[in-house]
């Protein structure tokens, strides 16, 4: 499987798209994870608003972590007031720990109709987002899908 958006120019466009989401939603972090082309693992490829470079090294297994769960279920997921009231252990949410996030909303990105990526927006203060903003994230994910597919 080839993600067309991962080339040098495509990479710039996707980074730019993450920056747009960050400034439009005034959130603290935007990240894009993609499933590896040669296996089921999921890796964070792009980020905006990141406080360090840890995301570049993070790989989660299919079905694990926020990214793995969103890809395996194909459904959006939100985490509120992290690490309180979460399902499982805090250590099962590496991107939340790496970026010091307290709130996250993640939506799937499809490639040829199959969930292969995740767009995540996060806040370090715990500020959640309303339904309109969630809809904006879903719309941004659709635009990224087009970039990755096209």
């Amino acid at each position: 499987m080839v993600y067309n958006g991962c080339g040098q120019t495509g990479s710039g466009r996707i980074n730019q798209a993450c920056e747009v989401v960050l400034s439009e939603l005034k959130c603290d972090f935007v990240g894009l994870a993609l499933q590896n082309t040669d296996g089921p693992d999921v890796k964070w490829h792009y980020a905006a608003g990141n406080i360090n470079e840890k995301f570049k090294r993070i790989t989660v297994r299919y079905g694990k972590g926020i990214a793995g769960k969103v890809i395996s279920t194909g459904r959006a997921m939100s985490v509120e007031n992290f690490p309180e009231n979460i399902s499982g252990k805090a250590l099962e949410y590496p991107i939340m720990l790496a970026e010091g996030l307290k709130f996250a909303y993640a939506v799937p990105i499809h490639f040829k109709g199959i969930p292969k990526g995740v767009l995540l927006i996060g806040s370090r203060t715990g500020q959640s987002i309303n339904e309109n903003q969630k809809s904006f994230v879903r719309e941004a994910a659709r635009r990224l899908e087009q970039k990755l597919n096209g």
Partner: peptide, 8 residues
């Protein structure tokens, strides 16, 4: 550990 949490 490094590939999970990004800490070297």
């Amino acid at each position: 550990y490094t590939s999970t949490y990004g800490i070297v």
